[in-house]
Simulated assay, not measured.
Amino acid sequence: MADVRVLKFDVGSSTDVALQRLKNRFDASTSSEAMRRSLAIADTVTELSAKGERIFVRDINGEIRELLIGAQ
């Protein structure tokens, strides 16, 4: 089993609402699972951005736009 560290912190109501929304979107069984998945995504996109790579999304109408990550 991987090394585990317990973290405890307070969140405001808007952060709690966002975490619950992510939990539902990920179909995660716990808030901790939703947080881990969210951190993994954030880590990946900020690493790519730091390397100078660009990240794009395509909406349901086929429009493509660039996501600006971090300090631009």
Rank of each mutant, 00 (worst) to 15 (best):
M1F: 11
M1A: 15
M1T: 12
M1E: 05
M1C: 07
A2N: 09
A2W: 07
D3E: 13
D3T: 13
V4A: 10
R5I: 15
R5F: 12
V6K: 15
V6C: 03
V6Q: 08
L7A: 14
L7Y: 13
L7E: 13
F9Q: 07
F9V: 13
F9C: 08
D10C: 14
D10M: 12
V11I: 15
V11A: 15
G12L: 13
S13T: 14
S14A: 15
T15C: 04
T15E: 13
D16Y: 06
A18C: 03
A18N: 05
A18Q: 13
A18G: 07
L19G: 01
Q20A: 10
Q20W: 06
R21N: 06
L22R: 11
K23H: 01
K23S: 02
K23W: 01
K23I: 01
F26D: 04
F26T: 02
A28G: 04
A28R: 07
T30F: 06
T30D: 10
T30A: 11
S31M: 06
S31P: 00
S32H: 07
S32F: 01
E33D: 14
E33V: 01
M35D: 00
M35F: 07
M35N: 00
R36Y: 04
R36H: 10
R36E: 09
S38A: 14
S38R: 00
L39A: 12
A40I: 01
I41Q: 07
I41K: 04
I41S: 03
I41M: 05
A42R: 04
A42I: 06
T44V: 12
T44R: 12
V45W: 00
E47R: 14
L48K: 08
S49L: 04
A50K: 06
A50P: 00
A50N: 01
A50Y: 02
K51V: 04
K51Q: 15
K51D: 12
K51M: 13
K51C: 02
K51Y: 01
K51A: 14
G52C: 06
G52R: 07
G52V: 04
E53I: 02
E53H: 15
I55V: 14
I55F: 02
I55G: 06
I55N: 05
I55L: 15
F56N: 08
V57R: 12
V57D: 02
V57K: 10
R58V: 14
R58G: 01
D59M: 06
I60W: 09
N61A: 12
N61R: 12
N61T: 09
N61E: 15
G62I: 03
G62L: 11
E63L: 09
E63D: 13
I64R: 05
R65A: 11
R65T: 14
R65P: 03
L67R: 09
L67N: 02
L67D: 02
L68V: 15
L68E: 10
L68R: 13
I69F: 03
G70N: 08
G70S: 04
A71Q: 11
Q72P: 12
Q72G: 11
Q72I: 08
Q72W: 08
